[in-house]
Design a protein around this nucleic acid. Structure first.
Lengths: 141, 141
DNA sequence: CTAAGTGCAAAGGTTTTGCAAGTAG
DNA sequence: CTACTTGCAAAACCTTTGCACTTAG
């Protein structure tokens, strides 16, 4: 279905379905959230010849097509993940760098009050919350 | 007072108080949240000779000393701001790139439920919320 | 066929590093 | 004096761009 919808969206814009595009989209789905570099590595497992440049171009394209989005999780590294799955918030542990996910419903009250009190429309999927995760925080008091 | 505490913290670690370090810290205070480049520009207004390398090194040092922190606001650009002032949350508009601040109290309920339900200790000052600001959102329905 | 897509290499921008000269303490 | 700091230049990174070759449709 991933490939089918990719083909459809591409065709609708007069663009072409290529092996590279399928592989990049698959990699993003399999990795969950990954940097361009990680996507490239994943793709390279199957097709070693694919260039990092192509990965960048393809991620940008897939984002325009609405098939993936990116968020800014760790230091300067944009990470890409599939659209269409349930929206989620990213929790980034500053100690172990572990990224976990939270249903976006968790931010619904915040989103509502931001809108009501500040007129700010929160883009929930793009949010990353930093802090110390349960595992690392166990060492406290 | 800034300089005094800087001097004290430095001395406590056997490090030296230099004009560059004072200037970088002052710039961070004056700018609120700024990229290394912006800090460099601000410092250059007073002391043109200060090298961007020194700004990077000094920001890193000041962060270790607990005098400034950084957050990831826009695409890949870390921005630094002083510690000690009231903690605040950053609201970043994806349309006009405007960054506004919100008292951290706004996230207190969220922080509490994150801790209670997920054992996650939120670092409020590091949080950036993305979305569409009031000004840009006015054009909606 | 023909235009879109790819790989390669090189450019662009930002951040880091090595080292000799400068300077706070 | 001593060793911490700085400035400079070069390296290391990540991302983007130009161009000729390849290939989907």
């Amino acid at each position: 279905m991933t490939d089918a919808s990719l083909a459809a969206v591409l065709r609708a814009k007069g663009l072409r379905l290529t092996a590279q595009r399928q592989l990049v989209l698959e990699a993003v789905h399999e990795l969950g959230h990954a940097t361009p570099d990680q996507v490239h590595a994943k793709v390279a497992e199957v097709a070693a010849g694919v260039n990092i440049t192509t990965v960048y171009r393809t991620l940008e394209l897939l984002e325009e097509l609405g098939l993936v989005t990116h968020a800014h999780l760790t230091h300067g590294a944009p990470t890409f993940h599939p659209v269409g799955e349930a929206q989620h918030v990213h929790l980034v542990c500053q100690n172990c760098a572990e990224v976990s996910e939270l249903p976006s419903a968790f931010l619904a009250p915040l989103a509502e009050s931001l809108d009501r009190e500040h007129g700010f429309l929160l883009d929930i999927g793009h949010v990353a919350l930093f802090g110390i995760c349960a595992g690392c925080g166990d060492n406290r008091g």
